[in-house]
Nucleic acid binder design. Structure first.
Lengths: 257, 257
DNA sequence: CGGTTGCTTGAGATCCATCAATAGGAGTGG
DNA sequence: CCACTCCTATTGATGGATCTCAAGCAACCG
């Protein structure tokens, strides 16, 4: 099993050596997909769930009028479907944003792993619940947040998600989304995404060049977007905690709140 | 266990007499809550999940700026949290819209029921997956649908959800939502909800008086909102199927599409 | 009866989409 | 190396969707 997945699951439960061994035994040969391809899934009893190891993907929906809405953004460590997924129920399509390498995980293998160890079950439930929290947060963003706020909120969320799998460095991360893909994720037009980005940039909060996003002042960005990381249920990431940790990291100044 | 719940679960799996017996054994004394109250939940190992038997409720979120977004609308037959919910993970608050009577279902009881019978497990997973599909559909609505379309889409969804628990009659149902609550559910302002409703009314598609919604032409409404009911995973509710069924029912005219 | 709540309507402001045009960069074939 | 194309980012102008503010009206209720 991919190390990124274990890293993420450790946020949700304490996994013993044995637990990790069980999960590792589910590993399958890696598969590669090029960018901008759909990841096709079989709906059979022998179903495999894609577990992303490298690269970014998304779950999306295309409406009759041609508009597209991205429902979730998937990064390394993300399991694309719940571990108890029913074989006969189909899902919204997945598409790669960058080249992706993933592990196909056998559905029934996961279920058996969950039954064999309470810690694994707990970790998988945790993973599932966090995924639905992330989707709910998107509901809140789309329904009640202004464009720049919405944009910054996503940046904060991805920062923490990527941090747990070790993909954050120098206060930033690789951000492969095109402005038009970002628009589909945020329910905005490309033009307006562009203007929201300029607003964030000119406030000195972020920079975004060459597919790399840097957050210059996480605390201020979080403040601006009323980003409260508790919904990610990361070990010890309450609002203050993440805020001050970021402040220390990014400015070298220690504040006590 | 509440009959409404069983009615709903039968859409997701074939439950034997014995299965239904197991589920019924989980029944607890009913509890009543008045309208506009939060349903408070304990986060302990002995946790109970509220299962709504009568009345409407919602899961919501209040932002720092005072705006509110409703994340899901809960009607009779809805279990308010996934059956594998983790004891220590908290959730967005639930609030009643009308007076509500619910059954507190013991979390570990549900888990044991799922382990004892594959059909129950399947039904519960089905229920959970449908709930997340509904939330995803809201993401699509909020992100990419215009106000009247969004409004009609919700009406169509609730029609089918309520139909499976026997709460639809005469092409309509009791609709207790205030325009301002509806606004919070649709990510709109009350004023704009009012205008969207007028648009739907003047097209002759619906009427909404005295807390009762009637859909005069389900097929046309569905067409207008590009409502595709497959995401509800109801037994035999594909797009055409529901469409023509509704057409027959509501106008007395049989069309072959 | 007065107070509250919910619905409706109008007017103006704001947010955001659409359309159109420009510019830069990356690839591609000649 | 150059012409060409495609894709992405950017900018301006305009219109549409939606919000906010404000007022009036109806129903209900103590």
């Amino acid at each position: 099993m991919a190390e990124v997945f274990l890293r993420k699951l450790r946020q949700g439960a304490f996994l013993s050596q044995q637990d990790e061994g069980i999960l590792n035994a589910l590993a399958r040969p890696l598969r590669q997909v090029r960018a901008h391809r759909d990841i096709v899934r079989e709906y059979s009893a022998e179903r495999f769930l894609p577990l992303i190891v490298q690269g970014w993907a998304c779950r999306y929906r295309v409406l009759e009028n041609g508009k597209r809405q991205i429902i979730s953004i998937l990064v390394p460590g993300d399991l694309c479907e719940p571990f108890g997924a029913l074989p006969q129920i189909n899902d919204d399509p997945l598409s790669t944003i960058t080249p992706v390498t993933f592990v196909p995980v056998k559905l029934d293998g996961l279920a058996r792993a969950a039954q064999s160890s309470p810690a694994i079950a707990k970790a998988l439930w945790w993973d599932l619940l966090v995924a639905t929290r992330i989707e709910r947060e998107l509901i809140v963003s789309l329904g009640r947040r202004m464009a720049p706020e919405r944009t910054g909120h996503l940046f904060c969320e991805l920062y923490l998600r990527l941090e747990t799998v070790g993909l954050v460095n120098d206060c930033g991360y690789e951000f492969p989304l095109t402005q038009s893909v970002l628009a589909d994720a945020l329910g905005l037009s490309t033009v307006h995404v562009n203007r929201s980005l300029q607003e964030l940039r000119s406030s000195g909060l972020i920079s975004l060049h060459n597919r790399r996003l840097t957050i210059h002042n996480f605390w201020r960005l979080q403040e601006l977007c009323s980003f409260d990381p508790t919904y990610l249920h990361l070990a010890g990431a309450s609002k203050q905690c993440a805020g001050t940790a970021r402040l220390i990291e990014n400015t070298g100044v220690i504040h006590v709140s």
